[in-house]
Design a protein around this nucleic acid. Structure first.
Lengths: 184, 184
DNA sequence: CGAGTTATGCTACTTCTAGTATCGATACTT
DNA sequence: AAGTATCGATACTAGAAGTAGCATAACTCG
């Protein structure tokens, strides 16, 4: 007799399925009060759970934000006939994502936190950047160093605009960014 | 009888000339312990003055860091025969500055703080970015929007590299950045 | 149904940091 | 000598990250 698809549950109270609710609450809170005031207390309250429950799942605030971003971004679409189409679509995709409410601010915030926190930097690099880097290396057939440079240019530019103006980059400038990167 | 070159001093104890010492202590502290642990207490101690004296001169930590960066960067060199030479020199100059000990980390740190602090964002934009933007507009004869885009690309890329790796961008990649921007 | 196990909510706590308040001492001008 | 503005030092408030402890809820297994 075949075992059921779901493996035998371990004993004890099961985890509440609140990850999605916490991620949504995180982005909503960051969008409403800004990264600096989006405290774990506030995020937990917005998600309707206790702060301690948040810390039982994510060890630090930075890890929570990173996980939220990984969830929010999802896989990069790598469609297109040639390098131009693929890169153009990928750049417009990340620009649109960073423009979504809360995402850009959360990204910039956790990025800033990471600058002086090697542990968080590693989390961010491993969990958020590496999957996209590897997918791009595979699809474009280009070496790691070159892909890392591309990511620096695209993401750095978009985040700098968010940081200096508080607003996502307008379409016309995203077009210019695409053109600049493609002609490289 | 002509008045002396120095205008009549106001009564009261004159301010101690410690700005330079505070700036040096700021960069040194950020370099040694990182932006996150470079507290105002620590910076003041490193400069040999009281924390309260720091707050009498700069209203917030962000303002202190910004003033320190303005002092550290100084005016952008805009030498060169044509647009290529001017831009190339300017990009290499800012890349070298961001690579100096403490400067890149301080820049990234205050930049990150600014993302969700509109007041600091204004200070950063007005005191740090605008002088360079205006000088570039004058020298290059290009509109504000285009120069802002250039700054986003160059500074954003350099800071993203600092933030993700903790290290300044290597020369080979700075060369690639110059080439990419110039061909635009 | 009862025992064992694990997750949750809640409250309280520690630690750290930005920024403020106060006050006596100091350095200058008139 | 009187007046004024700054400095150093101490103490303080407020806010946020992260932790500890405990009662309670939800589930599995016998």
């Amino acid at each position: 007799m075949p075992r059921p698809a779901t493996p035998a549950r371990t004993p004890g109270r099961p985890r509440a399925g609140v990850d999605a609710a916490v991620f949504a609450a995180t982005l909503r809170t960051v969008h409403e009060v800004g990264y600096a005031h989006a405290t774990v207390d506030r995020i937990a309250a917005a998600a309707g759970i206790a702060k301690t429950t948040v810390y039982r799942r994510w060890p630090t605030k930075g890890a929570l934000i990173t996980a939220c971003l990984v969830d929010a971004f999802g896989p990069v679409p790598l469609d297109g006939a040639d390098r131009e189409e693929i890169l153009s679509a990928a750049i417009r995709w990340i620009a649109a994502k960073i423009g979504e409410p809360g995402i850009g601010a959360a990204f910039a915030g956790v990025f800033t936190d990471a600058v002086n926190d090697p542990a968080l930097r590693q989390v961010l690099s491993t969990q958020l950047q590496d999957p996209y880097r590897l997918a791009l290396q595979d699809t474009l057939g280009e070496p790691e160093q070159r892909v890392l440079f591309l990511i620096d240019v695209v993401v750095g530019t978009l985040l700098h605009r968010m940081g200096m103006t508080g607003e996502p980059m307008v379409d016309a400038d995203v077009d210019a960014l695409v053109a600049m990167v493609l002609r490289h």
